[in-house]
Simulated assay, not measured.
Amino acid sequence: MLATINEMELLTETDALSEVILQSEPVAEYIEARSQLHADPEAQLLIKAFNDLKELNEEVQRFGKYHPDYDRVSKEIRQAKRSMDKHERVIAFKQAEKELEGLLNEISGIVAHAVSTTIKVPSGNPFFDSMSCSGGCGSGGGCSCG
């Protein structure tokens, strides 16, 4: 495969951008929060309990409210999720994850709009993603994104 000078420059710039991202504060905070979460035995027990209940819940959901354990499993999974979500390490990890996602979404938007303003870029917010069409929906202007 032959690469032009422009393609090589683009690859070099891409590598530089990825290095900047990897050295950023949100990435460092994410890695630290993830390692603290994995090292916390209490948090791991809560996560395991929730995941085990998720599997049981999938089985129960196949039959819906007609399954004999539907009410019990539904209640237990909500309680397990609440307990897991209230743990300080889980909270810190989710916050770090959200910050990193915001950075990556912002960079994606900058790169995409440098190519074309009609490229749709997810914002991480489903409400805004469904509202912003950016002209690329293919409905012939039926959604008035025009």
Rank of each mutant, 00 (worst) to 15 (best):
A112T: 01
E106I: 06
I119G: 05
E55Q: 14
T14M: 12
C145E: 04
V60Q: 03
R34G: 13
T4H: 00
A39K: 07
T12K: 14
T118I: 06
V115F: 08
S130F: 05
R72K: 15
G124A: 04
Y70Q: 04
E59T: 09
C133N: 09
I47V: 09
P68V: 04
I91S: 02
G146V: 15
S130G: 01
N57G: 04
S139Q: 12
V121A: 02
I119F: 01
A3H: 12
L37I: 02
S132E: 12
Y70M: 00
I47D: 07
Q61E: 12
Q44R: 07
P26I: 03
E25S: 10
T4N: 07
S108T: 14
G124C: 01
L2E: 14
N51R: 15
F63C: 05
N125Q: 05
S108Y: 12
Q61P: 05
T118P: 04
I47K: 06
D52N: 13
G142L: 13
V90Q: 02
I5F: 14
L11H: 14
Q95N: 11
P26V: 00
A16T: 10
I5S: 14
L46A: 10
E13A: 13
E13H: 10
A80L: 08
I107D: 00
R72A: 12
L22W: 02
M131K: 10
G138P: 00
A80D: 08
D15W: 10
P26A: 03
V73T: 01
V90L: 00
K75C: 12
S139I: 11
L103P: 06
E29V: 10
Y30R: 04
A39V: 05
I107C: 00
C133Y: 02
R89H: 10
M84K: 08
Y66H: 12
Q61Y: 10
